[in-house]
Design a protein around this nucleic acid. Structure first.
Lengths: 228, 228
DNA sequence: TACGCCAGGATTGTATACAATTGCTAGCGT
DNA sequence: ACGCTAGCAATTGTATACAATCCTGGCGTA
């Protein structure tokens, strides 16, 4: 299923962390994960290193690995950086114009979501992420795309708490369509307004949900494999 | 000298790549580096993974590692992202104010550099990098700091080609002092102007040097340890 | 009782052995 | 002469063994 075990462990471990199977503060040990995933320490180590890079796991040299704790300020800061970068995406796209085909496709998608509304909830988070990513890619600035991807990966796990009800999804559709319309006219001012509203709403939503998550993770298990 | 061999190899290998001992396009093998640094493959692998993350080395699965080739557009794009992020640093610092002590220290440093001018050339690149990093840290936004650090690490190796003569260093001093003065007065407009000039000059300088580097690396050796 | 020291265990850091994959090459057949 | 295939060499991917380090707990002493 995977090309190599490192990537496989990385994927599966990320998912478990994002699903809070391993809650923030949980201690991970290399050997424990070996048993968990039935592989040796080499791929586990590489996966852990990647997760440390991505910021999902914290590492204390020669001691242990710990699932990164949720921190409202960090999330807020990350969203702030994201907003700054995506505003630049708007600026670039309005300046240089966007391929019609891309705009058409995205617009069709979000019109579709809006019109048969209850059913889009399942992929809402993924769709939203893709929307922003594709616009970033349309700038042609890879450094920008990758930087945004890095930030996104740090807030990915809280994005799940953004679009949780139909009203919020409807609002998202409106914002996205407004952004697309503005981009089509190369109207930077409205693009910026719509984008800022879109992201700030998302951040507020997430932040609201964060306290629940934090308390839930405190209630859940805390210790790692052994050594209570 | 180092806490662990991985970090040590990482540092030393980075330096060799930056110094063009291993030029862009050069093929790196794990075993070759083992012999080179007298360590086993484990730390070498970890160092290579870090370098891949940092973008200095490209990896072809199950085949080889190659020193990343220089690409003018990528550098330009990275500088663009850096400018955007550092402009946000200015915005935040002007809004929330900066600790006097930090401004005093930085100002003293750059006044010192300017006044006994020829001698600062050696650490010019490092000093410049620290200047921008410390201002970023002063925002208190870790996501911003780390994102900037990520971008910086991608352009680190070309920054060496920025401040290469005294006139350029003098110019840098002027810009930095101007930035500090503006920050002291929370004067966003002038801070932005000085910063933009500072970074755009740097980018232009680097880009100018890039063609030389590229041609020099094409002239130099290309193959790795063996297998011509 | 409080503090410091030492031993033991747990865990990461490093080295090395083995497996799997890739790319080249020589040799065969057509 | 060309293309295909089997086998070889080189290299990375994975597993495991060994070394170094840090934490914990218990003991002794002031």
């Amino acid at each position: 299923m995977a090309e190599n075990l490192s990537a496989d462990v990385y994927e599966r471990l990320s998912e478990r962390i994002l699903k809070l199977d391993y809650p923030p503060g949980y201690r991970l040990t290399e050997e424990g994960l070996c048993a968990e995933f039935q592989v040796s320490r080499s791929p586990v180590r590489e996966a852990l290193n990647m997760l440390v890079q991505r910021g999902l796991v914290r590492k204390n040299p020669r001691q242990n690995y710990v699932v990164r704790e949720l921190d409202v300020k960090e999330i807020r800061d990350a969203y702030h950086v994201r907003l700054v970068l995506e505003l630049e995406v708007m600026t670039l796209l309005c300046r240089q114009g966007v391929d019609q085909a891309i705009l058409d496709r995205l617009e069709a998608h979000w019109l579709g979501v809006r019109d048969r509304l209850p059913e889009g909830m399942a992929h809402a988070a993924d769709d939203d992420e893709r929307f922003h990513r594709e616009l970033a890619e349309a700038t042609g600035n890879q450094a920008l795309t990758r930087t945004l991807a890095a930030i996104d990966s740090q807030i990915h796990f809280v994005r799940l708490y953004d679009i949780t009800n139909i009203e919020r999804l409807r609002r998202t559709c409106t914002d996205h369509l407004e952004i697309l319309t503005a981009l089509r006219r190369q109207d930077l001012k409205n693009a910026v307004v719509a984008l800022a509203r879109n992201i700030e709403w998302a951040e507020a939503n997430v932040e609201g949900a964060l306290s629940d998550v934090a308390s839930r993770s405190r209630a859940g298990g805390r210790e790692g494999t052994s050594r209570g």
